[in-house]
């Protein structure tokens, strides 16, 4: 059974996300027009806050995730994902998987499944 672990991240809600610059060794998930999830956390968020003094910046471990190989991920998606994930890689996508709100980071050979940690146990049970 794949085991999901909490993903420490920096979460930013801001109107100034478009031009922001982040270290290359981070996953930067644009979860909404005004929201970013940066995994793992970053210390310097000045490229946002210098443009938006009202930005909300928090350390956030409310999501849990697991990396799975591309084949295993594809099998899970075939079973549990009713929406179309296009073939482009890398790609970010989000929607219900196995009835639970899920974010996907898809790379050529692996996929990160991210769900709200309160649903991680049920998600694990469902995608078996």
């Amino acid at each position: 059974m794949p085991e999901l672990n909490r993903l420490p991240a920096t979460r930013i809600v801001s109107t100034a996300l478009d031009g922001a610059v982040w270290p290359e060794n981070r996953l930067v998930l644009r979860t909404a027009a005004d929201e970013l999830l940066i995994i793992p956390p970053v210390a310097d968020v000045s490229s946002v806050t210098s443009h938006d003094p009202y930005a909300i910046v928090v350390e956030d471990a409310s999501y849990a995730g697991v990396w799975l190989g591309a084949d295993e991920a594809a099998a899970i998606l075939r079973r549990h994902c009713e929406w179309r994930v296009t073939a482009q890689r890398p790609q970010f996508a989000q929607g219900a998987i196995a009835g639970i709100a899920t974010k996907l980071w898809l790379e050529a050979d692996r996929v990160l499944f991210v769900v709200p940690a309160p649903y991680a146990v049920e998600f694990e049970e469902r995608i078996v």
């Binding site: 979460r11 809600v13 928090v58 409310s62 709200p116």
Partner: peptide
């Protein structure tokens, strides 16, 4: 209105 909103119930 010019606001930013974060629901942090799970955080």
């Amino acid at each position: 209105l010019d606001v930013r909103i974060l629901l942090q119930t799970q955080r």
